[in-house]
């Protein structure tokens, strides 16, 4: 959450609204954000999902505990879910990887006939254009 706070302005400048969500209320969010020094730089809105309605919608609600698993979801401006990643309770997320995926989605939204390969990191890196010529020649295309 602190790592996300560090990159929040970048996400925002690139056109994303980042919202964190837990099953706590907004009142508890306020108390926690003001209390915890790690969160003093947090600027993102902290969403309250006390009924678990939103968490269930994204399949991260744990009925046993009433808590949400560590799920990250990227939704395009037309409302399509483009990324879904869920970690169990005990594994934190890499915000650089979230940034990479967001950048890739931005790029692909403007270049719909291309694909970003596994090692794609930023605009300017090699992409692939699926075609008959590419079949069996991905290695060569990536050189």
């Amino acid at each position: 959450m602190a790592a996300l706070a560090e990159q929040y302005d970048r996400f925002k400048k690139m056109g994303a609204e980042v919202v964190t969500v837990s099953t706590d209320t907004q009142f508890v969010h306020l108390a926690w954000q003001r209390d915890e020094k790690l969160l003093e730089k947090v600027k993102y809105p902290m969403g309250a999902d006390p009924t678990g309605r939103i968490s269930r919608m994204f399949g991260v609600y744990d009925e046993q505990t009433g808590l949400a698993l560590r799920g990250t979801f990227i939704i395009s401006p037309d409302g399509t879910l483009l990324n879904s990643e869920v970690n169990y309770y005990n594994l934190g997320r890499n915000i650089d990887e979230l940034m990479r995926k967001f950048k890739a989605n931005l790029y692909l939204s403007k270049h719909s006939d291309e694909g970003c390969p596994a090692k794609w990191k930023d605009e300017g890196d090699k992409t692939l254009k699926p075609s008959a010529d590419l079949v069996g020649k991905v290695y060569e295309a990536l050189q």
């Binding site: 959450m1 996300l4 996400f11 056109g15 994303a16 609204e17 980042v18 919202v19 964190t20 969500v21 837990s22 099953t23 706590d24 508890v28 969010h29 108390a31 926690w32 209390d35 915890e36 809105p45 969403g47 939103i54 968490s55 994204f58 991260v60 505990t65 808590l67 949400a68 698993l69 560590r70 799920g71 990250t72 979801f73 990227i74 939704i75 395009s76 401006p77 037309d78 409302g79 309770y89 997320r93 979230l98 967001f102 989605n105 931005l106």
Partner: peptide, 22 residues
């Protein structure tokens, strides 16, 4: 937060779920 409003503003939305405050 309203997804409808975010969409209208042409914004991407990133939802970041976590288990609990504190």
């Amino acid at each position: 937060f309203s997804l409808k409003k975010a969409k209208k503003a042409g914004k991407w939305t990133i939802l970041f779920f976590y288990p609990a405050d504190f």
